[in-house]
């Protein structure tokens, strides 16, 4: 029992170390300009524009439900006009980046793992290597750069739509005073909340790309291997986003409070 747990822990640590090495190789490829910048536009389109609808829907309905729930509780103590402020702070610093990250992990992380996994089992990655092309330069670095550029943009869209949807629900449906609600939102939402959300989104974008690529590049043989890699890419990137979000919140809050 204990040896099984130890073995799983060791395996998990090995995986973490391998992702870190992949990140180092990708960063080195980007800094030394070995990577293929020509692919950036395609990946930006694929990760960004193709994920926009799902991110907007998620942001809108999260903003709406958050507004409704906050209003129902705050109404009991006569704080109706603080509803939008709560929605805004939550969306900017937590829900916007985390939910966008999870949605992109589900759509893009899975797709990266499936595409690279299929390339691996059909020897296309070996073909790249045989043609004197480093797989990290051609496959990982462009996806990593695209994901880190696009994720903050998607997060901003998600936050804006979430707040807008909350405003419509709060003011249009629940009858909150629009002037006070808007004033409170502007007053209580700080620049630090927005910056914190953007920093998180950059890190989540990098995590999704790295985990997706790692799982694809290390997938086992056959259709089953590709399927498993795809599932694991979504599960691991989602868990990584949630865990890292907690630590990022602690670190960034402390950082911004000091400054």
């Amino acid at each position: 029992m204990i040896s099984a747990i130890a073995s799983r822990f060791t395996h998990a640590m090995e995986g973490l170390g391998s992702v870190a090495l992949l990140a180092q190789e990708a960063m080195s490829s980007i800094v030394r300009k070995h990577w293929e910048p020509g692919l950036l536009l395609y990946h930006t389109y694929f990760i960004g524009l193709k994920s926009l609808s799902v991110v907007l829907i998620t942001g809108a309905f999260t903003g709406m439900v958050l507004a409704a729930q906050t209003y129902f509780q705050f109404h009991k103590v006569g704080m109706d006009t603080a509803t939008l402020a709560i929605v805004s702070i939550s969306m900017c610093s937590e829900l916007g980046p985390v939910l966008s990250g999870l949605m992109v992990a589900g759509r893009v992380g899975a797709s990266m793992a499936a595409e690279l996994g299929t390339m691996k089992v059909t020897e296309q990655i070996d073909a790249l290597r045989a043609l004197a092309t480093h797989p990290v330069d051609y496959l990982v670095a462009p996806r990593l750069v695209a994901a880190t550029i696009v994720m903050p943009m998607l997060t901003v869209c998600s936050i804006c739509v979430g707040i807008l949807a909350a405003y419509v629900v709060g003011v249009g449906l629940l009858g909150i005073d629009p002037a006070y609600a808007w004033h409170n939102m502007i007053h209580y939402t700080s620049v630090e909340d927005v910056v914190m959300g953007l920093i998180k989104s950059v890190i989540f974008g990098a995590l999704v790309a790295l985990v997706g690529c790692y799982k694809g590049l290390n997938c086992q043989q056959g259709a089953e291997g590709v399927g498993r890699a795809t599932t694991e890419a979504v599960v691991f990137s989602s868990i990584t986003i949630l865990i890292s979000n907690f630590f990022l919140t602690l670190v960034l809050t402390r950082l911004f409070t000091k400054s």
């Binding site: 059909t122 020897e123 296309q124 070996d126 073909a127 290597r129 045989a130 043609l131 004197a132 480093h134």
Partner: peptide
């Protein structure tokens, strides 16, 4: 290392069993 091998591989051409064309 993989990167050092890239220069060595420029001297080689390899035809894979499945051809391994980029689909």
């Amino acid at each position: 290392s993989e990167r050092q091998l890239l220069d060595v591989r420029k001297e080689f051409g390899l035809l894979f069993q499945s051809a391994a064309l980029f689909d």
